[in-house]
Amino acid sequence: MSTVIEGEDTAIGRKEKKKVNLICSRNTIDGVYPPLILAINAARNGAEARVFFTFSGIDMVLKKNYEKDYRNVKFYIPGAMGAIPGMSKLATMMVKKKIESAEIPDIKSLVEMTRFEGVKFIACLMTMDMMGIEKEDLLEDVEVMDANQFMKLALSSDLNMFI
């Protein structure tokens, strides 16, 4: 028989969950890992976490990219070096190796983990219209919002981050 003794206040212990929204607007390795990892940790801290995918970031919620293990997600070196042909391919390979050697999940696993941990995904309606993306092109359970809907959500939330 065991009894739980009340400890310090935790985010979980609050009556209403805190709301955290992360915005992902890029489909690059450095554009994708931070919002997903922060969203996972927001959920683990008891928050209702969402990631809003807009512009190139919308690639992350497209079924076709998930099925192809997000091979289109690259790493680009900033500045003149990045303009050298083949440089992004080499940089992507190097960064992926570093991710693997640090035992960090690959992008597909990270997307799966994010969803398993209860983080909600939102696709930007304007981006969908602009790129001719239909609802059925999206991963299951991805919500669609326009800027006005998202802004209402953001205004009623506790933390919003554009990464």
Partner: peptide, 16 residues
């Protein structure tokens, strides 16, 4: 510091 009691013994937990 949060605690949990098991078989009459209080065990210390960290913040998570």
């Amino acid at each position: 510091m949060p605690e949990i009691e098991v078989k009459g013994k209080k065990l210390l937990l960290d913040e998570d």
